[in-house]
Design a protein around this nucleic acid. Structure first.
Length: 480
RNA sequence: GGCGGCGUAGCCAAGUGGCUAAGGCGACGGUCUGCAAAACCGUUAUUCGGCGGUUCGAAUCCGCCCGCCGCCUCCA
């Protein structure tokens, strides 16, 4: 059973067949580094990070490219406003971008190319388009003539005539078609500029993705992803540029994530409702943010609110709690012989695990349906808790729990939802002192000095440690 | 105006022609506990925005209506 992907280009789910068997060439539109990225920006970063790692889990060799747009109007505007250089702004927020990625447990891409380091490639691409009569010069600018590309509008499902009818009124009259877009912009005073055959200037926004994806992935590659707002014009223009310059098809599969709304509106600077990941991470742990996105299908619109995140936090706690328990169980390696001698009860549990395993992977294979997959993940959690509740985790119970733990850890290689350090630790001075404290507290409880025992518990709770008195003894956990 | 999406329990959310409509949060009852916490067991949508139609059979397909949103301009 193979992987299926909903392709924006065909508006259908298709079997995923990579150009080169076993290898996936994958491009994601990255950030424009003019500010900290917000929770809406985080969605594609997280979901496509998981998808990339899932492809690796399924055995593909993935080359993952995520660009950094470090030359752009918004960067220049901010630099002017703050009286510093655009390069300085770009550098600050590039650094911040990587810091935030790391906090969110997003793995680095294979390459993170920067636009400013690929000016030569962009110029070469524009020259090629010019040679082929697809691009034309206009007072130091260079434009792409959309009429030269018959497929223009295919990705976004728009027709050239309709687009023209709805185009903005204030168009540059000298352009051959109102939809022609800038490949190269002539330098204006105070803007970063590079030498080119057309004089000093800077590249248009769309050309960088064409140039960098083609450089690192070749003229034709497998997957191109991004937010759904990029379908038009950005991705439409990328296709036009790349195919105009010699790609047969450019990207084969186009994946677009749905938008995140806040109070029913999209998150944007102009609406003043932007919440940066940085800000949210002060309250909420990264795993919760990941789970928040993964519990929904990547193409659906989602609503952000504090309440929903708190709800997600409680769900995440359930998952983490169980994993913490599993870490306490003796790990018994997989063993065919042992497995053959298991009693029916354990055998049934393993069968249930196998069922959820295949259902989980089936869901992930089906257009990356992480929401359905997470449902099965919680079924596995329930199974683990049921076994844990049956009695001491020894013998066949430990064997089954070990299989469950391995399953969860395998999935966590791409989900990154679990924390290893949050389990009650078993070594170190701090841990020893804590054990001692719990022993003392239990003596108090035996003597029915509950006021004192409860005070210790609530004080520890205030400090961020949770105490649980279970039938087989007391345990402590670090919270959040 | 053109194009597209969405509306499933108190809330979040899968499911797109046929097994009992996943899963999570919450709530309620029970088990355990000195009390909690965690966990387990059980209950919580005879029905999928509304009205018609197609079909042996529809949340799923078609039509109309109501409500919400996105894109068409920089935007994840």
């Amino acid at each position: 059973m193979g992987i299926r992907i909903y392709n924006t280009l065909t508006k259908k789910k298709e079997d995923f067949i990579p150009i080169e068997p076993g290898k996936v060439k994958f491009y994601l539109c990255g950030p424009t580094v003019y500010d900290y990225f917000h929770i809406g920006n985080a969605r594609p970063f997280i979901v496509f990070d998981v998808f990339r790692r899932y492809l690796e889990y399924r055995g593909f060799d993935v080359t993952f490219v995520v660009n950094i747009t470090d030359v752009d109007d918004k960067i220049i505007n901010r630099a002017h406003r703050e009286n510093r250089s655009p390069a300085d702004v770009a550098e600050e927020f590039t650094r911040a971008y990587f810091e935030d990625l790391e906090k969110l447990r997003i793995r680095r891409a294979t390459v993170h190319p920067k636009a400013t380091e690929h000016i030569a490639e962009m110029i070469a691409l524009i020259r090629k388009l010019e040679e082929r009569g697809i691009a034309y010069r206009l007072n130091g600018d260079v434009y792409y003539n959309v009429e030269k590309f018959p497929d223009y509008g295919r990705l976004s499902g728009k027709k050239l005539e309709e687009l023209q009818a709805g185009a903005r009124v204030e168009v540059d009259e000298r352009k051959r078609n109102p939809l022609d877009f800038a490949l190269w912009k002539a330098a204006k005073p105070g803007e970063p500029a590079w030498d080119s055959p057309w004089g000093k200037g800077r590249p248009g926004w769309h050309i960088e993705c064409s140039a960098m994806s083609m450089k690192y992935l070749g003229p034709d590659f497998d997957i191109h992803a991004g937010g759904e707002d990029l379908i038009f014009p950005h991705h439409e223009n990328e296709i036009a540029q790349s195919c105009g310059a010699g790609s047969a098809q450019f990207a084969r599969y186009w994946m677009h994530n749905g938008f995140l709304n806040i109070r029913g509106e999209k998150m944007s600077k102009s609406l003043g409702n932007v919440l940066t990941v940085r800000e949210i991470l002060k309250q909420i742990s990264p795993e919760v943010i990941r789970l928040f996105f993964l519990q929904k299908h990547y193409r659906s619109p989602i609503n952000y609110s504090e309440d929903i995140l708190e709800e997600t936090e409680r769900a995440w706690r359930r998952l983490q709690n169980t994993y913490g328990e599993l870490l306490q169980v003796e790990n018994i390696p997989e063993d065919e012989f042992l497995a053959g001698k298991l009693p029916d009860r354990a055998r049934a549990a393993l069968q249930e695990l196998a069922h959820h395993r295949s259902a989980f992977e089936e869901a992930m294979d089906d257009d990356f349906n992480s929401a359905r997959a997470i449902g099965h993940l919680f079924e596995i959690v329930k199974l683990a808790n049921r076994i844990l509740a049956e009695g001491k985790p020894e013998g066949e119970r430990a064997y089954v729990l070990s299989r469950i733990r391995k399953t969860l850890e395998g999935y966590d290689s791409f989900l990154s939802l679990l924390r290893k350090e949050e389990s009650p630790a078993t070594s170190g001075d701090f841990e020893k002192v804590m054990e001692l404290l719990l022993e003392v507290r239990n003596s108090l409880r035996k003597k029915k000095l509950f006021d004192l025992a409860d005070e210790i518990r609530s004080k520890l709770h205030e400090m961020g440690y949770q105490i649980e008195d279970r039938p087989d003894g007391s345990v402590w956990k670090k919270m959040s």
